[in-house]
């Protein structure tokens, strides 16, 4: 029972990590909590659902399409809306992004209706038995993609010019401006990358969870916990935070009733905020 719970937790944790990385990127770079992040995940999930049901394309193969579309959505939202209010108070940005979140949820409700949707892949029952545990093939694939993307994102932030410009803007906004970084554009790209990562997370959870227009709220709750656990703006931290949350959830439910599962995440969130406000690793700035 316990080894299986640990395996499930690790496999799920990588996706939680992808959710956390995108969320923490925007928070770390622009100092805003993007409450619409959950809706980006939801759009990603719906897009891969639609591509799968209409064109029969496997959700793993449609990931590049979903990423490009979500990048464009995120870029446009930042460029034409968020950049206008990103300098406002916490009060302003929280309410604004919540407004976006419910607007997007309503649009999805009109397009896809309130029904629960899910993707049933032909190989969803397949699994690899190792020792006493089984590894479901779909979840293994999800894990692999999530780890690969985390790695690519890490390289992107460390090795590319745009990644370095994002880092510079996060560390010192005025300084970046002085050395010629187009901050408006960098902010928009940051939101685009964050949305693309959210979209992938959506594609990845679509085969294992059911989707409806209101999953954005619960998902953003998870993003909070992951991000706070991992510390603000750290890729490795977000991955670790995702693993910790997933393990707490899967192991926790083996010992306590499942109705307590949600409670557990929030208790962890509050305790970490109170006792370790810098997260488990004590990092603050992006890839510091």
């Amino acid at each position: 029972m316990l080894p299986q719970a640990i395996i499930n937790g690790i496999l799920l944790g990588a996706v939680y990590g992808t959710i956390g990385i995108g969320f923490s990127l925007v928070w770390g770079v622009m100092n805003i909590i993007n409450l619409a992040h959950g809706s980006f995940i939801m759009i990603g999930a719906y897009l891969s659902y639609t591509i799968y049901t209409v064109y029969g394309i496997d959700p793993f193969l449609s990931i590049p399409i979903v990423m490009v579309l979500l990048f464009l959505i995120g870029y446009a939202i930042q460029r034409y809306l968020m950049n206008l209010v990103v300098r406002g108070s916490v009060f302003i940005t929280l309410t604004f992004t919540f407004g976006l979140q419910i607007l997007i949820a309503n649009i999805c409700l009109l397009i896809w209706k309130a029904d629960y949707r899910s993707i049933n892949l032909s190989y969803s029952g397949a699994s690899i038995p190792i020792g006493g545990v089984v590894i479901p093939v779909v979840r293994l694939g999800i894990f692999a993609v999530a780890i690969l993307l985390t790695f690519l994102f890490y390289i992107f932030m460390k090795r590319t010019k745009i990644g370095l410009a994002i880092n510079a803007t996060a560390q010192n906004y005025e300084g970046a401006r002085v050395v010629g970084v187009d901050v408006k554009n960098i902010y928009s790209i940051t939101m685009g990358v964050s949305a693309a990562l959210a979209g992938v997370s959506g594609s990845l959870i679509a085969p294992i969870m059911s989707i409806n227009p209101f999953i954005g709220g619960p998902l953003i709750g998870k993003a909070f916990v992951i991000c706070v656990l991992g510390g603000l703006g750290s890729t490795v931290g977000a991955l670790a935070g995702g693993l910790v949350l997933a393990l707490v959830e899967t192991i926790g439910t083996s010992f306590i009733p499942s109705s307590f599962q949600n409670l557990l995440g929030f208790v962890v969130l509050v305790l970490v905020l109170i006792f370790m406000p810098r997260g488990l690793f004590g990092k603050r700035l992006y890839n510091e």
Binding site: I33, V90, L94, V228, F266, V270, I274, P277
Partner: peptide, 24 residues
């Protein structure tokens, strides 16, 4: 417990506490 946190962290802390109490 929570008012030592500032800005976003306070917002998150209160939200987390509210959700936790809801589930309790």
């Amino acid at each position: 417990l929570l008012l030592r946190l500032k800005g976003h962290y306070f917002a998150l802390g209160t939200l987390g506490a509210a959700e936790a109490i809801k589930y309790i």
